[in-house]
Design a protein around this nucleic acid. Structure first.
Lengths: 251, 251
DNA sequence: GATGTCAATTCATACTACAAATTGTGAACG
DNA sequence: CGTTCACAATTTGTAGTATGAATTGACATC
């Protein structure tokens, strides 16, 4: 894997033929979601009928419908015979889907959207760390330590590896919590890290601070101190929060 | 809506023909997910090829594939040419999808699964209540009050209305928090309430206790006291937790 | 003005055909 | 005997077409 990137098609955006023949549905899905998220088809709007959409995107109706089923599964649209396909209210969307979240984040300018994400992290991750300290297995601890080591190594080099190791670190702790609900939010954390790297021109000096805080978390979990783990993680996310807050427009 | 019920087809469970001609995909989807969740096709297993599956379920390959796209969207399977369709590890599944969660809950006997759900509620909902106290709009407050009133009314009658009002109550508070991440969690709460009603033979006397606690939450939010709201919600979920814990096998 | 009937539109399902990709087998060669 | 290369078989991916079913909207009738 190339780090945090989800898709990796060569470079052919909209060319319907050429070497982009394979993976029609994946690119098609992305385009459809993009049209909805971007507001070209706002909530409550009726999409053009399937025949027209298929022609517009240059694919068969079969492929279009398969992609649409994916969008239906995310709660973004709903089709009814004769009535057409309607865009559902955003409150119904599954924002935790990686593709959906990626696209939404690249289209939104609302600072509150990012702040909500950070708030959720600041709630979830300290709790997960505390639980991890209480119940992590040896394998869990090893995975956490390994991720931390990778961050140390990546520190001298550059961002791509650092962010991958960072994600691995937080994911390992959430996994160690053993709570399946917490695990559902890993995609949101991934998105938050991505956004953080997009928004802030992180000085490598701040890596040093971050690294220290990560080490504190590792130590607290390893020595089985739930409260210390919780607080160490709180401080760590607090740093991330302030970085994001600085990069956003003032409230 | 009829309360907590997601689907509402007449009464024909598995009859492949008859009046069940319509909504093939919905029942098909349910059956496919059920086969995977039940362990008939465990993690890592390769499903029969599409032609065979289509025949087995008595549908066309087109319909089967459209249903499969839903399953793909939930991260449960992955198809590759020539290699077949593989069941992905459960860590990859989107458990917050209503259909998936319903089916999983009806198949799991692991008490820890329920406890994790309650833990997550006990983490998220107090935070949401506090945030609601701080930033709810008048419309938000009204929605919460309305849900509470419905619970009062439903108290004398019976369970169906009570549970619907209960869900509405918790949903309204989470909505009032204004945090989109918290909102993603509503399906899990719905599932938790369903499970609670399945597992416990709630005495109507306990409704009185519950009602008082709900009222405390409403009051705390209405009077804009975040900490009081948090604590009131903590007590409320604590009650739910003890009810569930009593109903589960001993640890 | 209200109501019932009918036709047009749109999604839903089915069937068929072919393309693309990957895996496994087997032959050729070192 | 082991390794590598090429080819064939299998399975998913995409396309095209046809038909069914449901709902809406208009029209006619009372």
């Amino acid at each position: 894997m190339t780090g945090l990137n989800g898709t990796r098609r060569p470079a052919a955006p909209g060319s319907s033929d050429a070497a982009g023949k394979r993976r029609v549905r994946e690119t098609l899905l992305q385009r459809v979601i993009e049209e909805i998220v971007s507001g070209r088809f706002p909530e409550g709007a009726i999409l053009p009928n399937e025949a027209e959409l298929a022609e517009r995107f240059g694919v068969s109706r079969t492929s279009l419908r398969e992609a649409m089923q994916h969008v239906v599964a995310q709660g973004m649209i709903r089709s009814r015979t004769r009535a057409g396909t309607m865009v559902l209210p955003r409150s119904n969307w599954n924002y935790l889907d990686p593709l959906v979240l990626d696209i939404v984040l690249r289209h939104t300018t609302d600072p509150q959207f990012y702040l909500s994400l950070i708030d959720a992290r600041q709630l979830l991750e300290p709790a997960a760390a505390a639980q991890a300290a209480a119940s992590a297995t040896e394998a869990d601890l090893q995975a956490i330590a390994e991720a931390y080591d990778e961050m140390v190594e990546a520190n001298s080099r550059d961002t791509e590896e650092w962010s991958a190791a960072d994600l691995k670190f937080h994911t390992a702790i959430i996994d160690a919590s053993g709570n399946w609900v917490y695990r559902q939010f890993v995609t949101a954390i991934r998105a938050a890290l991505l956004a953080s790297f997009r928004l802030t021109n992180r000085a490598s000096q701040s890596h040093e601070d971050a690294l220290r805080m990560h080490r504190d978390v590792v130590e607290a979990i390893r020595t089985r101190r739930p409260d210390a783990s919780r607080h160490a993680m709180q401080r760590l996310i607090g740093l991330a929060r302030s970085e994001i807050a600085d990069a956003l427009p003032r409230d």
